[in-house]
């Protein structure tokens, strides 16, 4: 595998985690447009821990995920008051506030950025991606997931049948924040340099885009969407000046043709079925 392919794969892995962080919240029917904020928290915290405090990377990522998860839970409580697109806009504001915060935070270099991280291999990135994908897959077949889907389908009804919708939604926020933080920590240690501009609205939207394009009804969809978002612009290089427009047009076409996303359960079943037959 060429080093170029490897680095693209690492980017796919990092984006997959970001997308999964949105997927987990989306499973409860909530949309986050600010997960780049949690990614920033993870990136800066993990980098600060490895570079300044000398903590080993894996521990730093775990600590960053925990801290970000706690912040996610704290954000989750006030966010309970909001629904739908209003929650989405509040998270958008949260993301912009975090970016603005790091722009002014001197100990992490402010606008000048932060470096000194040791480069991690694509294998290390994918061990994390694999672990979290398995975790999400296990969750998808658990009772907790059914509760999350119930909250997404009809929160009032879920409440009536005695589900703890508050816990479910806040738990989803916490987990989402933790996964986004891991994505950020890996991003920082893959690119060995971070600056606040890495974690703007565009990044949050990329996460959502990966989930929706890939398929928002199944965790593996995030992987497909992330691969598409990273690899497609590389395939469009021949278009030169019109590369972004072609990307935008393809994006619209995919949404129009497969609004449920590229991957869904029926497609997945067909694939696995064929494989068994062959």
């Amino acid at each position: 595998m060429s080093t170029y392919t490897a680095s693209l794969l690492a980017d796919v892995g990092i984006l997959t985690l970001g997308a999964l962080s949105v997927y987990v919240i989306l499973a409860t029917g909530q949309l986050s447009l600010g997960n780049a904020g949690f990614m920033a928290i993870g990136a800066y915290l993990a980098s600060y821990l490895t570079v300044v405090a000398g903590v080993p990377l894996t521990s730093a990522l775990v600590i960053a995920a925990l801290c970000s998860g706690i912040i996610g839970v704290m954000i989750g409580f006030p966010a309970l008051r909001l629904k739908g697109i209003f929650l989405a806009m509040a998270t958008l504001g949260f993301g912009e506030m975090i970016r603005s915060l790091f722009l002014n935070l001197e100990i992490t270099g402010g606008a000048g950025g932060f470096h000194g991280m040791a480069h991690v291999s694509v294998t290390y990135v994918w061990i994390w991606v694999g672990l979290i994908l398995v975790l999400v897959w296990l969750m998808e077949s658990s009772r907790a997931w059914l509760e999350m889907r119930a909250v997404a389908d009809d929160e009032t009804a879920a409440n009536l049948i005695g589900l703890n919708t508050t816990m479910t939604k806040i738990g989803a926020f916490g987990m989402s924040a933790a996964v986004a933080a891991v994505s950020g920590g890996l991003f920082a240690h893959h690119h060995v340099y971070i600056e606040p501009g890495n974690f703007g609205f565009e990044r949050s939207i990329d996460f959502v885009l990966a989930v929706i394009l890939g398929g928002s009804t199944i965790g593996a969809g995030s992987l497909v969407g992330a691969a598409l978002l990273v690899l497609l612009p590389e395939q469009l290089r021949a278009l030169d000046d019109w590369r972004p427009a072609a990307f935008g047009a393809l994006l619209i076409i995919v949404l129009l043709i497969r609004r449920q996303g590229i991957l869904d359960r029926s497609l997945l079943r067909r694939f696995t079925f064929r494989k068994q037959a062959a």
């Binding site: 060429s2 170029y4 490897a6 680095s7 690119h191 590369r243």
Partner: peptide, 21 residues
């Protein structure tokens, strides 16, 4: 000549492509 779309990550992977491939 490779376009990095003014994105740092694309610049880095472009260098890998140029040097590696």
């Amino acid at each position: 000549i490779l376009d990095d779309a003014t994105k740092p990550a694309q610049a880095a992977s472009s260098l890998r492509k140029l040097a590696g491939d």
